[in-house]
């Protein structure tokens, strides 16, 4: 896979305050990357710099194979997209397309197609002032992709939406993944887990961890083994007899530093009545907590 964007040693200061500190990463063509971090970690600042709305203090953003104004090849959905309320959805989209250089006729056709795609066909000729938050978000997505950009930047695309809206939006994003490279920020890790080739963990302006979902998961795998006994007393007996460090909670025992083999041997020795034994992998949520706190 060839790369689309190369970010090296990106830095943004506001006076003495360093908001983004020496960040480097790359985006491969046709991949989806999740930018993960708490509020104020610098996600919006990074996306704004990539979108050309903020100038980096230092560092480089290199777009591969793009000649001229890089903004032409980028689509951007801000976290709080705001529209002129007195325009209709269709008028706004046609304007957006034309500003991206599409001829009037094409702009009109594309806007109709996209309004259908994001489910706003019936609201095409309504004033945006009457739109709900979810409708604005979908119109925001439409304006970001109307010129078929190579790179799509989405700032917290789902966090303001209700569960149904979130599902809709994730669905739309997934269907775009084939056509464009996507970089989106989120603090909802369940969403990130559903659609990501690469993870970027951001903390206080630092990139503290990056890699593919599998790599990151493998790295933070904590080999936690959970044994569920039939009886509470059985669990207690096991903890008593075992040489492994174990934690008991009712009939469930959790072993942090142990292999499956060790556990099974120990279980066989005492002839315990068990319900099930399983190895649990870390969720992205737990990894994030670990990364953010360590």
């Amino acid at each position: 896979m060839s790369q689309l964007l190369q970010v090296s040693a990106l830095q943004k200061n506001y006076g003495q305050h360093e908001v983004i500190k020496n960040i480097s990463f790359e985006l491969k063509k046709g991949t989806a990357t999740a930018l993960i971090g708490t509020n104020g970690a610098g996600k919006t600042t990074i996306l704004s710099m990539l979108a050309g709305l903020l100038k980096p203090t230092s560092g480089q953003i290199q777009h591969e194979g793009i000649v001229g104004d890089p903004r032409a090849a980028i689509g951007f959905l801000p976290q709080y997209p705001q529209f002129n309320t007195w325009l209709t959805a269709s008028e706004f989209l046609i304007m957006a397309a034309q500003l991206n250089g599409l001829p009037a006729k094409v702009a009109k056709d594309e806007s109709e197609k996209l309004l259908q795609f994001v489910g706003l066909k019936d609201a095409a000729n309504k004033k945006i002032g009457t739109f709900s938050g979810g409708m604005k978000q979908r119109l925001g997505l439409a304006q970001a992709i109307i010129h078929k950009p190579k790179l799509l930047l989405l700032d917290e695309p789902v966090s303001a939406l209700d569960p149904a809206g979130r599902l809709d939006m994730m669905h739309l994003m997934k269907s775009l993944q084939k056509e464009m490279t996507i970089l989106y920020s989120t603090h909802i890790l369940n969403d990130a887990e559903q659609m990501t080739d690469q993870l970027l963990f951001l903390k206080d302006g630092h990139l503290v961890e990056q890699g593919s979902l599998q790599d990151v998961k493998a790295k933070y795998e904590h080999h936690q083994i959970v044994v569920e006994f039939k009886e509470k007393v059985e669990a207690a007996r096991f903890v008593e007899s075992s040489t492994l460090s174990a934690e008991q909670q009712g009939a469930v025992v959790t072993l942090q530093i142990a292999t499956m083999q060790q556990v099974i041997q120990e279980l066989a020795k005492g002839d315990f009545a068990i319900r099930k034994v399983e190895q649990q992998s870390a969720s992205l949520e737990e990894i994030f907590m670990k990364v953010a706190n360590g």
Binding site: A51, I74, P78, F83, L99
Partner: peptide, 13 residues
């Protein structure tokens, strides 16, 4: 100030 400029300035205007 009201954020509407962001959706214009991201385009090659």
């Amino acid at each position: 100030k009201n954020r509407t400029a962001a959706l214009l300035y991201v385009r090659p205007i």
